[in-house]
Write a protein that binds this DNA or RNA. Structure first.
Ligand code: FES
Ligand code: FES
Lengths: 151, 151
DNA sequence: CAAAAATAGGACTCATTCAGTCCTGATTCA
DNA sequence: TGAATCAGGACTGAATGAGTCCTATTTTTG
């Protein structure tokens, strides 16, 4: 497996969508319809991303979410980290030392960190902008799907 | 999080140990003592690795496990894939098409594959040999820990 | 000023998956 | 023949994730 959570999955989908429509904010219900993802979870993810500083929110009737930064500045690593927590392939990697029982006589710690670093680097090399340009649909579709689903 | 399972974790630890002691096979109980990991799980992981072709086994009284290939030929990606299954960051990546509900109108599929490919590449660039050389302990220790734990 | 629409935050439940254990059989060596 | 080891799978308990829902708070609009 080795897969990220659906939260991160959804988050990247949502961020990509927003990166393609930078002109105005989108509300959670709108985004749920557009991406065909379940509204409550979408809402949860958006709130999370907002708390982490990747999105800006605006309350009230005409409120919604929009990117808080230039898509070129946002890396895939940052999005995953925001939703799934720090990228730590094994327990011993996590910030707190002492979390691993074998820490003192373990000669692998440096290796875990190397593996971890390698993967992190790979994810940092891809920006939201990179994802957005290639996922941009024919713009006609912008809203044509709206209302297709009930939720 | 974004972490691999303990199976893969243990597997890499065990493989690294074996890579440092290429002269003879080790039994599951021996390896459990040396690595200070729980025996039943160690046994399970070893069997798994053997079935996947990364280890050779030899039954009987003087049996045990040993690497079936040159450590330079074994990548971290291969070990993780053997234990955790194919590296697939999101559901849509998995082999079977049709697994994702949004497949037809999804413009992100290429992106997932790019992310996935990037991470896979990072893990393929590290070989077991790379891990082993840096984790090699002072060889005096070879067995000094033996018997320190009961299981 | 009041109502509607949206976000903020968190509690909660259910399903899935993982970690770990255990048992039964097959193989090898002394 | 018997002891030690691997082979394979079934099983249980715990942890985690996905998803839902409820109650504020904020903002716009009539
Ligand atoms: S510190 Fe945890 S296995 Fe090395
Ligand atoms: S195919 Fe699954 S999200 Fe695109």
């Amino acid at each position: 497996m080795l897969r990220m959570t659906k939260q991160a999955d959804y988050g990247i989908v949502l961020m990509s969508y927003l990166a393609n429509q930078p002109e105005r904010p989108f509300s959670a219900p709108d985004l749920a319809v557009e991406t065909q993802l379940p509204l409550p979870t979408v809402s949860k993810v958006l709130k999370h991303l907002c708390r982490e500083g990747l999105l800006s929110s605006h309350r009230g009737v005409k409120g919604g979410y929009s990117l808080s930064q230039d898509p070129r500045q946002i890396t895939v690593a940052a999005m995953i980290a925001a939703l799934d927590g720090p990228i730590a392939f094994t327990e011993c990697i996590e910030d707190t030392p002492g979390s691993c029982s074998q820490e003192d006589n373990c000669h692998l710690r440096a290796n875990w960190q190397r593996i971890n670093q390698s993967v992190t680097q790979a994810l940092e090399d891809i920006s939201l902008f990179d994802l957005a340009v290639s996922s941009r649909p024919p713009l006609v579709q912008l809203g044509s799907v709206r209302g297709a689903l009930a939720n």
